[in-house]
């Protein structure tokens, strides 16, 4: 057993899943928007997530026109950009967060931002910031070769998404390409908390597991410990986004220590459901 941290982002994600498996647990993957309410708070929230039992985190990179996101995340992006958030600021915050802890952090970023900065530069910036990979919600399989090659060269994960509208042969092809884990979108629609899990989700996850060796995380619409428990029974983990973003938005005036305690309780309850 070595105590040296694995070198690549993909290896760090794999090690996290291996540790969870060894402990008989599934992974909780919360999502937070970078810079909402501000980047210092984001760094502190990321540390609180790790302390509270999150396995990995998706760091949402605000974009002006996010068509995959529902009103909660969209509004958080608008607030962050309204305060003058820049990509340089996001990478700097990511660097501070990854230096402080071992939890893998992936950037959830629109391809519009990646293309504008240039794939090589964006990937290099992410690598330097200690990020473990990317989720790019508006980059389908057909357009992804260049980013895929750059991520593989850098050892960063490029997490792919399958949705209820994805035909089986296409889902299999996407699953084979995904690195780090596969993101199984629970519903056809935008991000946002929903009360029920859709029918057929369990069967879909079971089938996906026959198509790929990478772990499968389920996201979109998941906000409660009950939903996390149901998802964790079949998948390798659950992604919780809008519910946490909403909590942060509603607590904008709460002193930071109280806010972090509240975030910690919320996430610990969800993590407990992953056991």
């Amino acid at each position: 057993m070595t105590t040296t941290a694995p070198a690549t982002g993909i290896a760090r994600i794999e090690a996290m899943f291996a540790a969870h498996r060894a402990a008989g647990r599934k992974a909780l993957a919360p999502f937070v928007t970078a810079g909402d309410p501000d980047l210092d708070t984001t760094v502190a929230v990321l540390a609180a997530l790790a302390r509270s039992g999150a396995g990995l985190c998706e760091l949402g990179v605000p974009y002006s026109d996010p068509i995959a996101d529902g009103p909660v995340i969209q509004a958080s992006y608008t607030r962050a950009l309204g305060k003058g958030l820049t990509l340089a600021g996001v990478f700097d915050a990511a660097r501070r967060a990854t230096a402080a802890g071992a939890m893998p952090i992936l950037a959830m970023a629109s391809y519009s931002l990646i293309f504008r900065r240039g794939i090589d530069r964006f990937v290099a910036d992410a690598l330097a910031a200690g990020l473990a990979g990317f989720v790019v919600p508006d980059l389908p399989l057909e357009e992804s070769d260049d980013l895929d090659a750059a991520c593989r060269a850098a050892g960063l994960a490029l997490v792919r998404l399958v949705t209820p509208t994805t035909p089986p042969d296409r889902a299999a092809a996407i699953a084979r390409k995904s690195t780090g884990f596969l993101y199984c979108v629970s519903v056809a629609g935008v991000t946002g908390a929903r009360t029920d899990l859709p029918a057929g989700l369990v069967d879909r996850v079971r089938w996906l597991k026959t198509q790929t060796d990478v772990p499968i995380l389920v996201g979109f619409g998941i906000s409660s410990p009950e939903q996390v428990r149901a998802v964790a029974a079949v998948a390798d983990g659950a992604i919780v986004g809008s519910a946490l973003v909403k909590l942060l938005a509603e607590s904008a005036t709460t002193p930071r220590d109280a806010l972090l305690a509240e975030v910690g309780r919320f996430v610990a309850d969800l993590a407990a459901a992953c056991g």
Binding site: I67, A68, Y111, S112, P137, D138, L139, P140, L141, E142, E143, R160, L161, V162, T163, P164, T165, T166, P167, R170, I174, V185, A188, G189
Partner: peptide
């Protein structure tokens, strides 16, 4: 090209 969420691909 086609830069959209997977939900719209089909």
């Amino acid at each position: 090209g086609r830069y959209v969420p997977e939900t719209l691909s089909a």
